[in-house]
């Protein structure tokens, strides 16, 4: 039985490249669900899903409203909606106002995931050019979850990881290439 049931990942500027380097390193037998919130300029998330699916060790799909969160699968937040986790581990969406100029917002995903999984959650904050995700990361830590922040020196854009470290701190601060192995060690039996 793994110690963590879900991994939430947030990123913005430089996020696609970072995810393309991180996802191939995840163990194919990972049983945790992976949920990604990446700010993209495009109106449709399907291109992001396709690009990630090409390199990911795990299957990748858009997070579907009201659907159950599948273990061992990478779910990507749709564009234009906040992605929320219900306590019974289903996805829900909202079109509430943007948070930190973003929708989907990493804060919203992290805060609701923290409520749903408490100490069985890992949250990862990667490269990004705004401070979305920092308050969510603090909520994850308050609930007993494990927080990983990409080393700002290593990030394409350091604002997001720096804000995360400043506001929430982290249980691990690692260069991008070390993060997948760390997640595997947290989530594999």
């Amino acid at each position: 039985m793994s110690r963590h049931d879900a991994i939430v990942i947030g990123c913005s500027a430089g996020g696609l490249t970072a995810l393309q380097r991180l996802l191939p390193g995840l163990a194919p037998n990972l049983t945790a669900a992976v949920i990604v919130c990446c700010h993209t300029g495009s109106a449709d998330v399907s291109l992001l899903v396709e690009l990630l699916a090409r390199v990911s060790a795990l299957p990748v799909a858009e997070a579907l409203e009201r659907s159950h969160i599948t273990p061992g699968m990478v779910h990507v937040a749709p564009t234009g909606y906040h992605l929320l986790i219900e306590e019974d581990h289903y996805f829900s969406l909202s079109v509430d106002e943007k948070v930190a100029w973003s929708r989907p917002s990493i804060d919203v995903l992290f805060q609701t995931a923290a409520d749903a999984w408490r100490e069985r959650l890992v949250a990862v904050l990667l490269t990004g050019a705004n401070s979305d995700g920092a308050r969510g990361l603090a909520a994850v830590r308050r609930a007993g979850g494990h927080a990983v922040v990409q080393d700002p020196e290593d990030a394409e854009s350091d604002i997001m990881p720096r804000a995360g470290l400043e506001i929430a701190g982290a249980d691990a601060c690692l260069p991008l290439d070390a993060i997948a192995a760390h997640l595997n060690s947290l989530c594999l039996p």
Binding site: H82, L84, I85, E86, E87, S92, S94, D96, V108, Q111, T112, D115, A116
Partner: peptide, 9 residues
């Protein structure tokens, strides 16, 4: 109402 978004609001 869906609990997660109600709580946020």
């Amino acid at each position: 109402y869906a609990p997660a978004s109600l709580k946020r609001r």
